[in-house]
Amino acid sequence: MSYPAMVYLHSSPGLYLQLTKPGEKPQVQDEKALAQRLKRRDPEAWAWLYEQYCAKVYRYIVLRVQNQTEAEDLTEQVFLKALESGPSFKWRGAPISSWLFRIARNLVIDYWRTDKSRRTLPLDSQPLRETVDPAEKAELKSDIQQLIQAVEQLTKAQREVIELRFAAGLSIAETAKVLGKSQGAVKVMQHSALVALRKKFSGWSNHE
């Protein structure tokens, strides 16, 4: 779906919400207007939110459940749950993304809590970044495997910071809101997680 550089969505006379194309973050003043429109179940605002965050939410979930089908199911549930809770949602200045990722995080926690016998699928059946070259694809699978193993050895808090920052692409402020921690604490965890990852993952040298 292609987006114009700027999309102007009129919600009521005199009030408009300036939405950016996917990948760009809305301005703080827009977040409030967006929250109001999501609360009213405005289809255009929901479509925009979905386009903006579907891939990010999916990336965050697929790395945590390591199963494509379950990740797709959970990603869809995140948006449906957000829709359900939309009318009671109160915007208190936090980014909309942190609300969405809190739902995603809770769903993943419930997913593992309800059935501890769940098994992950081998990486062969995992969705990978689009690569044409089979050799590159094989190398990428190996890198992902190593990275997942390295991430699994981190502390729970460090792991969450890495997944939210580098898989979901959230900012420090958004990550802090999702985890309910201060930005300073998240920066400390990010630093220690990268130091630990650097030591554990041998594959870095291939990417340097």
């Binding site: 969705p127 992902i144 580098f166 692409g169 130091v195 993952f201 340097e208």
Partner: peptide
């Protein structure tokens, strides 16, 4: 440098896309 390259690689490797 090593930390930035580690983060860059993680971000690159993690870039899976939904179908």
């Amino acid at each position: 440098e090593p930390l930035l390259r580690a983060a860059l690689s993680a971000s690159d490797i993690f870039s899976v896309k939904p179908r």
